[in-house]
Design a protein around this nucleic acid. Structure first.
Lengths: 240, 240
DNA sequence: TAGCTTAAGCTATAGCTATTAGCCATAGCT
DNA sequence: AGCTATGGCTAATAGCTATAGCTTAAGCTA
């Protein structure tokens, strides 16, 4: 609970505005003051929403990603189940908010790793792969939601999917830099090249999560393979 | 029903004995005649079990892998839900039987492709990749169950997992042949090499199923990448 | 500061689900 | 021919999502 505050803090700060916009379809018909001066109500509402998502993450960690129950959330929050519908119109809406939250965090992790890495190009890709892999192993429940689609009828809304496209753009930028540095052939930055790059992360991470989810990034037999993937990608698109 | 006989036929013939052994834990305390002469009862029981699995597959195809409901199976079978428990002790047991069935079919597809391919070695790997990829796209629901673990509390029993190990052995044999032919370095046949090989299939297939499940093997942007994977694997383990 | 709006809780209810308990007929083994 | 146990049933429990409608009080607005 208390240590979940770390997670919650990140969720709250990084999410307060974003979640309000993304999931706040209920505001559409309001009296017009979406973000007026005295938005005390709006603030409390956003806080409660963040709290719900935080509890949802805890529960998913305990019970599995797909077996999230609104009743359990309500129980832990200390309200009756129907009251949750004042914040999210359905169970899928909760998943959608979690999906958006996860995509944003993942994008940020990739962006930060790429920004830190020197020089631009393949070294950035390697850094982003490692950072992404570590994040996935540390946030497996969220990662399942992002990359597996484990929840029966759930497909993310276009808004929630947005950050995923930005992540792809980030990788596209790194690959273009690698091409300019002569580390890769120009085709690497094309559609097919980026698809291949995505597959090279997804492969080991899928295997690791399906066959050894209790491992850490450093001990996993499959996560270990991630370090070799940039070289493999270069082998697929060798500079002329 | 009638056209499902194709599926059922395969399930029934390939499965009659296997399913009886795998899921037939109820026989353990019997009077001793497990497969005696007049096993009319046993036959009908196995038939009904196969029919249940066939209906389950249909329903999963319609509603999604994880949202399989015993009530729906019962409804379609024309019996009351509790009666299903005479055949499977729980919902998870149905999943386990489906998992075993899927693993056997996948193994058979890989084995057949490898057997057909000439010469032994990397050409077999390429053939197995393509055959496996096609099977996965044609049996996405089953594939999700095998490679994604989309069902909350479900983990396959060791018996059901057996064929997966045999599939890995099949690939190990192909890689050893490739090493002997001088197509790959010896390390390719080691633990790490086989893990990498598995990741190279899983990557594109995961991406395809998550981002473009309605594509076919031939039209999918990610399935297309499978053809390049044997060459990538060879790049990772070039012969000295 | 007074009043009104509306957000956010509640209970009750409907319609699902898996699973257990216990009853009974009859198919089919001996 | 007789017995057994298989395979069906109904009834009941506990849990789930979601909807409808009521009520209180928080907090915006004039």
């Amino acid at each position: 609970m208390t240590d979940a505050a770390g997670t919650a803090g990140a969720a709250g700060s990084g999410n307060a505005a974003g979640s309000g916009n993304a999931a706040g379809s209920g505001n559409a018909g309001g009296s017009g003051n979406a973000a007026g001066a005295g938005d005390r109500r709006g603030r409390r509402r956003a806080e409660t929403k963040a709290e719900i998502l935080e509890i949802a993450l805890d529960l998913m960690a305990e019970e599995g990603a797909a077996s999230l129950s609104l009743s359990a959330i309500a129980r832990r929050l200390g309200i009756q189940p129907p009251s949750l519908y004042k914040y999210f119109p359905s169970r899928h809406a909760v998943y959608d908010a979690l999906f958006a939250l996860g995509q944003r965090r993942y994008r940020d992790v990739i962006a930060e790793a790429a920004a830190r890495a020197e020089p631009p190009g393949l070294a950035q890709v390697a850094a982003a792969f490692e950072a992404g892999g570590r994040w996935i192993m540390d946030n497996q429940i969220l990662a399942q939601l992002l990359f597996w689609r484990p929840v029966p009828g759930f497909t993310p809304s276009p808004e929630s999917y947005g950050p995923a496209l930005e992540t792809r753009d980030l990788y596209a930028g790194m690959v273009r830099a690698a091409v300019e540095r002569g580390e890769l052939a120009p085709a690497a930055a094309g559609e097919e090249g980026l698809n291949l790059l995505a597959s090279l992360i997804t492969g080991p991470m899928s295997q690791q999560m399906a066959n050894g989810p209790e491992a850490t990034f450093d001990t996993g037999a499959y996560t270990r393979l991630l370090a070799r993937m940039p070289a493999l990608f270069a082998a697929a698109y060798p500079p002329s």
